[in-house]
Nucleic acid binder design. Structure first.
Length: 357
DNA sequence: TTGCTAACCTATTCAAAAC
DNA sequence: GTTTTGAATAGGTTAGCAA
């Protein structure tokens, strides 16, 4: 079966996740719509949290209702309202807030874009987890990217609907990731993003873990690093950690963790759950706000962060349940190898990662 | 099957920040 | 001042779900 050509149900599920709003949610949205039909990002985020749906869904709902209202005004209302309608509320009173992506985040997005110009909701959520960027911002980023970087294979800008074949084959069937058959590609950027154990996290991170990669093997961290070229010296990572740049600096390597929580500020001992726990990085991780859309953590975020170690661990190694140990991936992205080296340097006493609780 | 509507798209524009 | 690019809009299509 040619996975590239299957346009079946599973793929559609991966592209869209339709959620029916209940009456209470609709009522709340209507109230807010009457107050302000053009809510800014912060307001949408507040509403999303309040209603338990995503910010992009809030955005979609407001878009639709602005459209409906405009149609109603056009059909039913007087010239007076049409004159008012000419004063489009496109420019908000407050200036637009602008997300500043880090080079790390941009690199991940670009690589994902090159693999698939039309990521579905599952892929976008995985990218959101991986980068710490809200899914709605990732959606916008892909829209802008498509508009400004026409697909050279098609020769022209995409003018109608996304080609179904543009879906990444690895994402077609289950929304999970499969090992790439392309020997030149790496699975190290789109990683097994589901932490081993997060049943009630803010995102559904409990979707099955990636299958063991064929190239997975047991290695010492030093071997991993040695396999890479000189340009991937682990010191680069350390250097980057201390390279704190101003929020507006475009290409700076910001080490901001998702949700702006410095790793050492989690509410538990990093060594409790993982032998690969992230060591304290002192001020190096306490960079100033880079992305103003990150919010302060709520309870769900904290629950998520409690599995942060495990998540990192799963990005670097693969748990072998039948063998009872973690196998370090051989095909690590340079930053992963550098992170691994850093962790092991700091955790010299514990060379064998433990299975998370 | 049909209607509703959430989710998605392109095209375009605005505007913040970098150059 | 110009360029780059994130954010937002309008207007359209697609697709999931309930009746």
């Amino acid at each position: 079966m040619d996975l590239n050509c299957t346009g079946g149900l599973l793929e559609k599920e991966a592209r869209r996740r339709r959620i029916i709003l209940n009456q209470s949610q609709k009522d709340t949205l209507r109230v807010w719509f009457e107050k302000n039909p053009n809510p800014d990002l912060a307001t949408r985020g507040h509403l999303a949290k309040k209603l338990g749906i995503s910010e992009s869904q809030i955005m979609t709902w407001f878009q639709k209702h602005r459209k409906i209202r405009k149609q109603v005004e056009f059909e039913c209302c007087s010239e007076e309202s049409q004159e008012q309608g000419q004063d489009k509320p496109r420019v908000k009173e407050a200036g637009r807030s602008r997300t500043h992506f880090t080079k790390f985040q941009i690199d991940i997005l670009i690589e994902a874009f090159e693999k698939n110009r039309f990521p579905g909701i599952v892929t976008r959520e995985k990218l959101a987890q991986e980068t710490g960027i809200p899914e709605s911002r990732i959606h916008i980023w892909f829209q802008n990217r498509r508009a400004r970087h026409p697909d050279p294979k098609q020769g022209t800008r995409a003018t109608s609907h996304p080609p179904e074949s543009s879906q990444c084959p690895a994402q077609k069937t289950t929304g999970q990731l499969a090992p790439s058959k392309d020997p030149t590609s790496s699975c190290s950027v789109i990683l097994p993003l589901s932490p081993p154990h997060t049943p009630n996290g803010p995102l559904d991170l409990s979707r099955g873990r990636q299958k063991q990669l064929p190239e997975t093997t047991v290695l010492q961290p030093s071997q991993v690093v040695q396999r890479r070229g000189d340009d991937q010296n682990p010191s680069l990572f350390i250097d980057h950690l201390s390279e704190v740049k101003s929020p507006g600096e475009k290409e700076g390597f910001h080490t901001q963790a998702p949700l702006q929580l410095p790793i050492q500020k989690r509410g538990h001992n990093p060594s409790e759950n993982s032998g690969l726990s992230v060591p304290p990085l002192e001020d190096s991780t306490q960079v100033s706000a880079v992305n103003q859309h990150f919010r302060k953590p709520d309870q769900k975020d904290l629950a998520f962060l409690q599995h942060w170690d495990e998540w990192f661990q799963s990005m670097l190694a693969e748990w072998m349940p039948d063998k009872g140990y973690w196998a370090v991936k051989t095909d690590l992205h340079p930053w992963q190898a550098q992170l691994l080296q850093l962790l092991y340097v700091s955790e010299q006493t514990d060379q064998t990662p433990q299975q998370p609780v």
